[in-house]
Design a binder for these strands. Structure first.
Lengths: 122, 122
DNA sequence: GAAACTACTTTCCTTTTAGAAAGTGTCTAG
DNA sequence: CTAGACACTTTCTAAAAGGAAAGTAGTTTC
């Protein structure tokens, strides 16, 4: 008997799959969660502040990722009229809706470390 | 004045950053969330079942990602003693602890779609 | 006027990720 | 004895992601 046709297309699953893909594509890459997490904690920060806060990121990546996040209305970019020009980045109201997701991710990662540590200690 | 030294090393932030990196590295790639989500919904599934359920994935990726997830104790692999050999994949108890994270991700993605749809409709 | 600060952009290069296609090997129904 | 099912692995290649370093551009401090 052939069995190629029966793809599970239950609407609920399809919607969930699509939703997960959407979320991941907006937050893809190595740095977006770090940037968002830092901005959620730290209110407004300048470009150089972020560069110092986020360990390991370079200017190219920071610049590119901030642009992506701005386009998707997750981050505000505000050029200040200061002597050496400064730019203030902050999380948008919409960006704040990612807090539960980021918190879950951090929480799970912390538990994971604890678990690995306990296993190794045995 | 120079400003190269003051890296924010508050323990809380560092731990959160590390935790987020850990979680992301375990769940990296295009397919892990889909596989885990499908297994959480669908109890035990065979390799071909997963291939059919997860739209777009190929055998190479599915095989590789399942191995990764098995190594990290998120997925069980059980070879069944059947005529044409079958393998049953299922989520582990530990894998189930990812449910809240996956749910958050799906929830946010669904809200995002709704928001984009409403904006376009205006 | 040299050095240092702000905020990037650009270029070049390496690594990683992903997919398509074909191959391996076993078993069974017709 | 061939076609199709299951469960992969291997190879080849293309595309995407990421990083290091240098460059651009304006301001300010010493």
């Amino acid at each position: 008997m052939k069995k190629t046709a029966e793809i599970n297309a239950t609407p609920v699953c399809q919607v969930r799959m699509q939703a997960i893909s959407d979320t991941m594509s907006l937050l893809s890459g190595k740095w977006k969660f770090h940037i968002l997490g830092t901005l959620i904690e730290g209110n407004t920060l300048g470009f150089m502040d972020l560069l110092r806060e986020i360990n390991g990121i370079g200017t190219k990546m920071l610049s590119k990722e901030l642009q992506d996040l701005e386009v998707n209305n997750l981050v505000n970019r505000r050029v200040m009229n200061t002597k050496p020009i400064t730019v203030e980045y902050s999380i948008t109201e919409y960006g704040k809706t990612l807090s539960p997701l980021i918190d879950e991710m951090a929480k799970w990662g912390i538990d994971y470390r604890r678990k690995v540590y306990l296993k190794d200690a045995k």
